[in-house]
């Protein structure tokens, strides 16, 4: 069958138009044939949200952002968006902007109001929720953590200074306290060893945290809250550790008092310098680790830096 030119051209143009319209609607996340449900949300900060970004409810894509602009009347950011008409966007629903601007993965999350509430009408306004963005949370937490770490270091330095002072005091009697001191040192060593494990476990915690972070960055901003919770746990663990250090400190203080009251002789201690050397090297090793941690927190926190991530 031979078609006339008019039919060929007309058919081609119609097919192309249909493909164009359906294709654009598909990529815009609009339902191909249904009408849409348009809403507006108001924010103080758009956080890099632009038209075309997706809108989600509980992690499910339900629509997309139409337009983002500054309201002339209020100076606030207005976000026009549309969602699947079947989504029960009820009174009490609020919206948050999540994701990383730097990655271009910014999206809007809706937290739906009570299911039995009245539905917000077409074109209605949705309130902005308080949603932190991950990086600001991280940067807020990091200095606190560093402060904690440096106070530990300060305390340890104090301990070392006192120990040195005690050791260099000429009239202290060591002999009687030597046995006790040896026991104490063993205790300290054991403690330090266990603390080393603990530090290692803190670091591995941090590693797994970073892995979680990676995973969450890769697919989903959802885990941010969980991640921060995890961070807080880590901080708590660190605090516990600090308490333990304090205990150690007290024990050391007791030891010093005993040494100061001393009934032993300094000569023996000098003859038997191995204890001093062992203690000294252990402490300086710990000191080095802590100093490194203090001066170079990047090494331990580096996975959290966004530039290193990507």
């Amino acid at each position: 069958m031979k078609f006339s030119n008019e039919i060929k051209v007309g058919l081609t143009i119609i097919v192309a138009t249909v493909i164009f319209i359906l294709g654009v609607r598909y990529f815009e996340d609009l339902p191909l044939f249904d009408s849409t449900y348009d809403l507006v949300a108001e924010f103080d900060n758009a956080g890099g949200l632009i038209g075309g970004n997706i809108v989600r409810v509980n992690g499910v894509v339900v629509g997309s952002v139409e337009d983002v602009y500054i309201s002339e009347a209020t100076g606030k950011v207005m976000v026009e968006f549309h969602v699947d008409p079947n989504i029960p966007v009820t009174e009490g629903t609020y919206a948050t902007i999540t994701g990383f601007d730097a990655l271009g993965v910014v999206r809007m999350d809706l937290v739906l109001g009570p299911a039995d509430g009245p539905k917000i009408p077409e074109g209605g306004m949705i309130a902005a929720g308080t949603g932190g963005d991950l990086m600001s949370d991280l940067t807020a937490q990091a200095p606190e953590m560093l402060e904690d770490v440096s106070s530990v270091v300060d305390q340890l330095n104090g301990v070392l200074a006192e120990t040195n002072a005690m050791l260099s005091a000429p009239d202290s009697d060591f002999r009687q306290t030597l046995t006790a001191a040896r026991g104490s040192v063993e205790q300290i060593e054991g403690l330090l060893a266990s603390e080393r494990d603990r530090i290692a476990s803190i670091l591995s915690n941090t590693d797994s945290l970073t892995a979680d972070l990676n995973a969450s960055l890769g697919e989903d901003g959802e885990a941010v809250a969980a991640l921060i919770a995890q961070m807080e746990e880590t901080m708590a663990t660190l605090n516990e550790d600090l308490e333990r250090f304090q205990e150690t400190n007290e024990q050391l203080n007791e030891l010093l008092q005993k040494l100061n009251n001393g009934e032993g002789t300094l000569g023996l201690l000098i003859n038997d310098s191995s204890m001093y050397h062992r203690m000294d090297s252990t402490l300086s090793g710990l000191n080095g680790l802590i100093a490194d941690f203090q001066s170079n927190p990047g090494r331990y926190l580096k996975e959290m830096k966004i530039v290193d991530l990507f």
């Binding site: 654009v24 598909y26 990529f27 815009e28 996340d29 038209g51 075309g52 970004n53 997706i54 894509v61 997309s64 271009g104 993965v105």
Partner: peptide, 8 residues
């Protein structure tokens, strides 16, 4: 991916 980065 295509839908997420689509600009009308």
């Amino acid at each position: 991916g295509a839908r997420e980065f689509f600009q009308p």
